[in-house]
Amino acid sequence: MNGPMIEARALTKRFGPFVAVDGIDFRIEPGEAFGFLGPNGAGKTSTMRMIGCVSPRSGGVLRVLGLDPTDDGPEIRARVGVVPQEDNLDTELTVWDNLMIYGRYFDLPRREIRERATELLEFVQLSDRRSSRVDPLSGGMKRRLTIARSLINRPELLLLDEPTTGLDPQARHLLWDRLYRLKRSGVTLVLTTHYMDEAEQLCDRLVIMDNAQIVAEGSPRQLIVDNVTREVVEVRLAIDADPAAEVAKLKRFGDRVEALADRVLVYTDDGDATAGEVASDGFDAASVLVRRASLEDVFLILTGRTLED
């Protein structure tokens, strides 16, 4: 495909007086894994629904696969795969029937669907479950089935809205591995997440959304380099400490200090040295921990809030 996979300029979504997406610009190239990172309510899902042509935009320009969702919704949807935030499988039917039905929505011949379904169940490691009903499957298995289902039309573009929310760590890692393989096979991935580790694992490039707007854009690495120091010292305060006073004292140790509910983050380029200074100063802390800066810190510094808020 020539040109970008998705292009948005001043893309806006309003529900009555409420502005869900406030004039955002982005461009996603073929083969990329692109992420929308942000807290709940930032406008990620509304953006995804506009891209998936199930929600008309209120303003701005949007092109998906070079087409306009307003005019070519069905044609775009025929070439896109969607993994929604909440599973919407036919739970009273079998794994196999779910794939057959979904394939028919795309008007694929049954023989073709059977071939693809067999391959896809192999791919998401559900071949041994093809005859079981969906209802009793675990959350991770349902998620994998939803991904298999989203691939039944061999999409060029896969939209994943919070793909691993609510899954245990093992299920998440299995899912990430499958998504990584898809990306390697050339499928363009667009995902939303409020997990910074997911964004770091999967995304070549991402935008950080807050309050319906994009506040930063870049590769996970670049975003950290541009916005945060290399390392972070996390100081957990003693239980009887006065937070305001302690934060004031910690200010002189780092380039920047952020106070959270249960701990204080000191941003510095040399974590061990700073942690040493804090300790030798006789500072009254329950614990002191040094770690590398992450996207979580980028978000905190840009918005003043944590992602889980």
């Binding site: 199930v54 044609e75 949807r77 969607v82 929604p84 919407n88 499988l89 979904y102 008007d107 289902r149």
Partner: peptide
């Protein structure tokens, strides 16, 4: 399931 249907053509 209706949401699943309208995500297709």
């Amino acid at each position: 399931q209706f949401h699943g249907v309208v995500a297709t053509p």
